[in-house]
Computed example of a mutant assay.
Amino acid sequence: MRGLVLKASPRRDGNSALLADAAAAGVREAGHEVTVLHLDDFVEGMLRDCRTCRHDDGACGIPDGYERLLTEHLVPADALVLATPLYWYGMSARLKSTVDRLFCFMSEDHPGSAAVLAGLPGKRVAVLIACEESYRGATLGLQGQFQELTRYLRQDLVGVVVGIGNSRGDVRHDPGDPLRAAADLGRRLFDLRITDYRFDTPRDNAVWSAG
């Protein structure tokens, strides 16, 4: 299986990057392929008005590496690990732009939309958040946003790890040991059982022993 870890912080040696590296190590330990990328290397522009900046063939007109990130790495991956610092109680700007710009490539006007629309659903998604505040509510809005994003894209949000820290490397001292938790999430990325019951969902009373 192929995992893709996206580092969404402009600080390459920051706390969310440490969480990302721990998760990637866990994925490798479980015997899966994993690629680790920095969004800064691909995403430079924000989503614009597609009616004014598309090329004549419908392709995106923003001249950066986003299309390569999407088509060569994100779409082919079986699972995504998204690592972001908490910025104003939300995701980093690079990660938000990455999500926003899916709009252009999912539009039927884009020449490559069929492959993107076929490749986005079914992925497993894990989220890693570096946050200065230990107050639990600080990250709940962002966690809810990821839940809705994955629901919309028909993906499974398999886990969230929050590491508390501010200065570089501070997350290592979090007594909750988020680095261990991120590594464990990476190891179990393709094995975690996800349930989303409705009142009429057929299910066994034994959650973990059911097939």
Rank of each mutant, 00 (worst) to 15 (best):
Y89G: 02
Q143T: 09
L149Y: 15
A138S: 06
M46H: 05
G165Y: 12
C104Q: 01
L140A: 12
D40E: 13
D56E: 14
T150L: 12
F42V: 08
G176S: 11
D191H: 05
V116C: 09
G122M: 03
G119A: 08
L142M: 00
R51N: 09
L120W: 01
Y152L: 12
A30H: 13
R2L: 03
G186L: 14
A183K: 13
C50R: 05
A206G: 06
C50L: 13
M91Y: 01
G211R: 15
L4P: 00
L102G: 08
G186C: 07
F146H: 13
K123Y: 00
Y197S: 12
G141K: 02
M1Y: 11
R180E: 08
K123C: 02
F42L: 06
L189N: 02
F105P: 03
R28Y: 01
H73M: 02
R136Y: 05
H110M: 01
D56L: 10
S113G: 05
V160R: 07
D56S: 12
V75E: 14
P63W: 09
V161D: 00
L19M: 05
G159Q: 13
L142E: 00
D174A: 06
S97G: 12
G163H: 01
L4W: 10
L39E: 09
Q145S: 09
W88C: 01
Y89S: 11
A138L: 04
L128H: 07
H55R: 12
I164Y: 01
E72D: 13
F42W: 10
T35L: 15
S92P: 14
G141N: 05
V5I: 09
G163D: 02
D78W: 11
G14D: 03
R193D: 12
Y87R: 13
C53S: 05
G61K: 09
R11T: 04
H55P: 03
G159D: 06
F190H: 01
A24M: 06
V43T: 07
A83H: 11
Q143E: 15
T71E: 09
S9I: 14
G169M: 06
H38N: 13
G65R: 11
L189Q: 04
A181R: 12
C53A: 03
R187M: 02
H73I: 01
D196G: 06
G3M: 13
L128Y: 10
V125A: 11
L128T: 08
I62C: 10
S9H: 15
R54A: 05
L117W: 04
G31A: 05
R151P: 04
D204T: 12
L95Q: 10
